[in-house]
Amino acid sequence: MDLSLFVKPGQRITAALWNKMAAAARSCRILAGDGVRLRQTPDGTLISCSAWTPWNHPFKVSLSGTSATIGRGLVDGIEPKIRDVPIGGEEGKPQPKLEIRKPKFDDEGRGWIAVEVTCEKEKWTVEEATIVQVDDLKSKDPLKGLHPLVMLRDAGGGAMTLFQIEYFNLQHRADVREGGKSARHFFWPA
């Protein structure tokens, strides 16, 4: 704050000084920024800040050493599996872990943990979904479609950096070509 606002005995309160005081009072008004709520009362302004808590979104991947756990998520209402156990776990069974002892990376050190859907041959609807670790998001089998959940970057020395890609449950449709010889698989948030 401008310290020239303070006066000495006998000093005149000029228009300029008065205006400076008014500007200083104005600059002290409280405005609500990001994550803040204000409630003005006769006794003052109540400032409330949002408490940030971790968001446990669908398909949230946590990496611990060489294994990854994936939060419960759905593709067309089907819960993907790791070794035949749904990713969110089953009654009496712990949440399954995807073991990545030898992670697959492409030439630039990129790999993905992805959900792989397998479509039914006639209607091309999702029959089953599994979690896989891959170094390429293209599938050779037209009935299978891959959608990345996280990217893994090779950080050297066996370490990996994880970047979350998917935050929502998913819907899927296949765009079938050449009588089923090729297909494009589209995913979008449910």
Partner: peptide, 9 residues
Amino acid sequence: TPSGALVSA
């Protein structure tokens, strides 16, 4: 700011 103080979390 001249118009007030912007408070953000």
